[in-house]
Amino acid sequence: MLRLGIDIDGTVTAQDTFVPYLNESFQCAMTLEDMTEYDLTKLLNISHEEFWGWMNQHEPLIYKQAKPAKDAKEILDQMKHQHRLIYITARRQHHADITYEWFHKHHVHYDDIELVGGHHKLEAVQKHEIDVFFEDHHGNATMIAKEADIPVILFNSPYNQMPIDDRIIRVNNWQEASQWIKQYEQRLETAY
């Protein structure tokens, strides 16, 4: 049984979740493909203060209405029988109720959910003794892979195209992630 650490936004939820809200608020017509950096302040030409003001206002609704990523629920339903599913998210603590409600509404299984309130997930990864982490943020993936010395499955996106090291595995979807986990399990079994 593996202890799987799983990011929520852009990993379990669709990567383009924020796009319609940003387009409406900032009167633009961006697509996910336009988002070539995780930091949206440059793309929107606004300050960090303006961005976080916008986030504080819109986050609850966005998190509540987020759609699951394609095949995420089905794959996680399969994985829950063999592994522990521990969600470690950058969401802030005051979004705990909305987060749990979303999981219940979409019938997505969890063994634990930890809202760390920022992109420093390493402590939570170590606390939960995570074996493999699922992430969409390049910086998080790199830090976790290096510092925790575990494989990180990075969900491919226009905003995470920087180089990766050999502990990071790029996948395009949950089907590929599932396939990698199955092969990894087989390698571990053969090693014993």
Rank of each mutant, 00 (worst) to 15 (best):
L43V: 13
A69R: 04
H81N: 14
D34F: 04
L32Y: 11
L44A: 08
E49R: 06
R84D: 15
I62T: 10
M35S: 03
Q78H: 11
D97E: 06
H95G: 09
H83P: 06
L44G: 11
I75Q: 04
Y87W: 07
C28H: 09
D34L: 01
N45G: 12
A29R: 15
H95C: 06
D39P: 07
P68T: 06
A66Y: 02
Q65F: 00
Q82K: 15
Q78G: 08
N45P: 07
A69L: 02
E59Y: 02
L40W: 04
H94N: 12
H95S: 03
K64M: 01
M35R: 14
D39I: 07
M30H: 15
K73F: 04
C28S: 12
D39S: 10
S47T: 10
M30T: 15
M35K: 13
S47D: 06
T36N: 00
K64Q: 03
L76N: 05
D77L: 05
Q57S: 15
H83W: 01
I88A: 10
E74M: 07
E74N: 09
K80R: 12
E37Q: 14
E33L: 09
M55T: 11
Q82F: 14
L44Q: 10
E49S: 06
Q65S: 02
Q65L: 01
Q57Y: 12
Y63T: 05
W54N: 12
D77S: 02
A72Y: 02
T31M: 08
H95R: 06
L76Q: 08
E49V: 01
D77I: 02
Y87F: 08
N56W: 03
S47K: 07
Y63W: 04
R84N: 14
T89W: 03
K42W: 10
M35T: 13
F51L: 06
A96Y: 08
K67W: 00
M79T: 11
M55R: 12
Q57P: 13
M35H: 11
H95F: 09
E50S: 09
L76E: 02
H94F: 09
H81T: 14
A72T: 08
A29V: 15
S47R: 02
A96H: 12
E74I: 05
R92N: 00
K70T: 11
D97N: 11
K70W: 01
D97V: 10
W52E: 13
L40P: 07
L76W: 09
R92T: 06
Y87T: 06
L85A: 09
A66W: 01
H83N: 10
E74W: 00
T41R: 13
L61H: 14
A29E: 15
K73A: 09
Y63S: 08
E37Y: 12
A29H: 15
E37H: 14
R92G: 00
L61K: 13
E50T: 10
P68I: 03
Y87M: 05
M79D: 05
H58E: 13
R92Y: 07
L85V: 01
A66C: 04
T36H: 02
I86Y: 07
